[in-house]
């Protein structure tokens, strides 16, 4: 499991990416999906997930839909158009970041 310090800035991108894979998802489902995709290496805690989701909702990158499940209400989140555009930007940025990191850790000797 990676340290939370390392993961901190990546949660938003991870959540956006996971949401883009499915039409709509609820909070618990997102945490499970991330666990599954990362082979239990990355855990999105409730403390990180929900504040980010609500902020994304405010920004209009995701929308929430209230659905009654059994005796309670479940909030399903789905990515909006501007959300998926922003996700692309974030992922591009992160990939460039990885390239940069790689070139720092493995300098090509010329």
């Amino acid at each position: 499991m990676y340290s939370s310090q390392l993961l901190k800035g990546t949660f938003q991108t991870i959540i956006l990416k996971v949401l883009s894979e499915k039409e709509k998802m609820y909070g618990y489902e997102i945490t499970q999906k991330v666990k599954e995709l990362s082979n239990d290496e990355i855990v999105v805690t409730e403390g990180s997930l929900y504040p980010i989701l609500h902020k994304l909702e405010e920004l209009g990158w995701v929308t929430a839909e209230r659905v009654t499940i059994g005796n309670r209400t479940r909030r399903y989140y789905s990515l909006t158009k501007s959300g998926s555009e922003n996700m692309r930007v974030k992922i591009d940025e992160f990939e460039r970041f990885i390239q940069t990191m790689k070139s720092i850790f493995n300098p090509k000797l010329t």
Binding site: Y28, E46, E57, I69, R72, T73
Partner: peptide, 14 residues
């Protein structure tokens, strides 16, 4: 309220 709904649902699932 919306956060409470999320957390109640989350905990209920657990």
């Amino acid at each position: 309220p919306p956060l409470k709904e999320d957390l109640v649902d989350h905990i209920c699932t657990e």
